Computed example of a mutant assay.
Amino acid sequence: MRITAGDVPALERGVALLGSGGGGDTVTAAVLLRRLLETGVEPVVRAVGELPPASRVVPVGVVGATAAFTEKVPGGDEFASAVGAVERWTGERADAVMSIEIGGLNGLVPLVVAGELGLSYVDADLSGRGLPRLDQLAVAATGRGIAPAALAEPGGQVVVLAAGTDQEIERGARAFVATSGGWAALALAPIPAGELAACSVLGTTSAALALGRRALAAGESPARDRLAAAVDGAVLARGRVLEVARHVGPGRHGSPGFGRGSVTLADHPGGELLRLEMENEYLLALRDGLPVASTPDVLAVVDHRTGVPLPCDAIRVGLEVDVVRLAAARFWTDPQRLPVLQPRAYGIDCDPVLTC
């Protein structure tokens, strides 16, 4: 499958929904993808099964403050530097790249990387949705580990985090981007294509494209059942945002936590109150105080009129919105992996509420 200019709107909508309120600004990422396509380069997306099992696939993505990425767009060398660094460190050449995260801007930027480096793009990722931390990636959840990881920032600095626990690599990456422009290009060690089925979520780019096409086809202000069918999920509430509260969440290892908050809206027409607990993503939905949906299912809030997904940092009082739930990738419902993304992984004392 080739990505063409006609695919960009649907792909952008799909990855924005899968971002679950996080993942960063897809608008800037879509601009970068369109610029690549205007040069005549169309990224080739290949299913894992199409690759020789020994093919080396490098996961890539943007880490750090995604707002900084929008303000300070790539100069063109960051990803080539990161991929080159991890190739030199491991002694293995990349045959293809994949995304670390399908939700948000990382659902689009790795396609640009593939086109610029002349490599195939693999239809898989390490998240299946939007995730806030590297130590939650699928390679961490399956015990494969994140290290070694190479980071390249816009000013030209390149570092390789050669060894350490997943939590140490996460902290090291955060420390690097905090002192070097706010964001960095990330490249992880090559993974043989034959091993991807065990440590990644397969088919996510094609699924995001199909999701985006259905969502766009639903049109503006769709009926409740039409919207539910478009996202292949459920509409949890439709109504006006009554309150948005924000505060700093619990930190780890003496460091401040991510921003935490809640959103409350009145569901039409019955008036039941739906509250969303959020961090970088929407994490838990409660109706009249009772949990009705949670991570790892994808919770998304969309503008009722336009259908555009609203990130956690953009939700405001007075907006008319739809709250939708998309089923989690089967990868995350495995009992051994569920603890990585359940509410308690974010400090919320609640059992996961999953799609039946």
Rank of each mutant, 00 (worst) to 15 (best):
Q336H: 13
L341C: 14
V321Q: 00
R287Q: 12
A162S: 13
V41G: 04
G318F: 12
A16D: 06
D232G: 15
G271I: 08
R344T: 14
G156W: 04
R34L: 14
D267M: 01
A65R: 10
L338V: 11
R2D: 11
G118L: 10
A198L: 14
V45W: 01
A197Y: 09
A173V: 14
Q336D: 15
G239A: 04
A285T: 04
A29I: 04
P256G: 04
A141M: 07
E71S: 13
G270K: 11
G49Y: 12
A67Q: 11
Q336T: 14
R214D: 12
E153L: 01
R260S: 13
L227Y: 06
V122E: 10
E243V: 06
V231S: 08
A184I: 08
G181D: 11
A293T: 07
W89Y: 15
P296G: 09
G307D: 01
L51W: 10
G318C: 09
V158I: 13
E42D: 14
A114F: 10
A150H: 06
R238S: 11
R214L: 04
R56W: 11
T142Y: 08
V231I: 08
A223H: 13
G40D: 05
A293N: 10
V139R: 12
T295C: 14
L341D: 05
L196V: 08
R246S: 06
P9Y: 08
E277G: 14
G155V: 08
P154L: 07
L119H: 03
R246K: 07
G23E: 01
F258G: 14
A228C: 11
V8T: 05
A215C: 09
S20H: 03
L236Y: 07
G61Q: 03
R337H: 15
A228Q: 06
Q157L: 10
G64A: 10
V15F: 12
G118T: 05
D25L: 10
G61R: 01
G156S: 12
